[in-house]
Design a protein around this nucleic acid. Structure first.
Ligand SMILES: [Zn+2]
Length: 249
DNA sequence: GTCATTTGACCGTCG
DNA sequence: TCGACGGTCAAATGA
């Protein structure tokens, strides 16, 4: 018996105009149900060849997105609106990220050493695509902490296994000689201009401490952050209808 | 054929 | 050492 005649697939997507399609192509690679919230959490990864960007989306039973957390940034422009035709001949190729510290060649837009927290790291040469990443600035708003996790780790690895804070660089091999860290592969584009969820570019042009309640939005953000998430991982965020869009490093 | 989604298994970290 | 938890993998499945 085939059940194929049962074509009552209800359009549960309800076309909420909730364009979760933010212009990029995401592939879902997992779904779990975290203990904290009742809603299942979906894991997506950007389908672009070398793009390490991932995102977590929690949506309630109604399909409402309750939380979305980005990790990393895209190192490529948004794909055209047209479906990616494979014969993209005239398109600039994705400039594979050189795993070594090999600079691109000339005029590296020197991202000068970017320090968040207090860890100064060697000049992150982001051989970034020319589309995004020009100039950089410090988002000092993330220099605070919600909870006290008194330690600063100064490694920002692109696709390290640290998606929240899993184990800092603690020496797993308890030999004493810590393994020499690989010379940073890349990127994390700590640029001042980035493309956020909707594909818009946001550029920071100022920062100010509100008198009385210092940084109220920060307080709200901390309220949304889970206990595991440290503010130091938050690159920036924005609010979309009570929902924080969080971008991590 | 390609490509995205589903979903249980698997793995690392932490207590 | 074990289990809970969160993140990822990958085979199966569907479009
Ligand atoms: Zn991407």
């Amino acid at each position: 018996m085939d059940y194929s005649s049962n074509n009552n697939y209800q359009p549960q997507s309800q076309t909420l105009s909730r364009r979760s399609d933010d212009g990029y192509n995401w592939r879902k690679y997992g779904q779990k149900q975290v203990k904290g919230s009742e809603n299942p959490r979906s894991y997506y990864k950007c389908t672009f060849p070398n793009c390490p960007t991932k995102k977590k989306v929690e949506r309630s039973l109604d399909g409402q997105i309750t939380e979305i957390v980005y990790k990393g940034t895209h190192n490529h422009p948004k794909p055209q609106n047209t479906r990616r035709n494979s014969s993209s001949s005239s398109n600039s190729t994705a400039f594979a990220i050189a795993p070594s510290n090999q600079m691109n060649n000339s005029e590296v837009t020197d991202h000068q050493s970017y320090t968040h927290g207090s860890g100064q790291m060697d000049s992150i040469a982001t051989l970034e695509n020319s589309s995004i990443s020009v100039g950089d600035d410090d988002f000092e708003q993330s220099s605070q902490r919600c909870k006290s996790s008194g330690d600063d780790y100064d490694d920002d690895e692109p696709d390290a296994k640290r998606w929240k804070i899993e184990g800092e660089n603690e020496g797993i091999s308890g030999g004493g000689s810590r393994t020499v860290r690989e010379p940073r592969v890349v990127v994390q584009t700590t640029s001042d201009i980035d493309i956020l969820d909707d594909g818009y570019r946001w550029r920071k042009y100022g920062q100010k401490v509100v008198k009385g309640n210092p940084n109220p939005s920060l307080t709200q953000l901390c309220h949304h952050l889970d206990y595991e998430t440290d503010l130091e991982d938050v690159k920036y965020w924005s609010w979309h209808n009570e929902i924080p869009i969080i971008v991590l490093y």
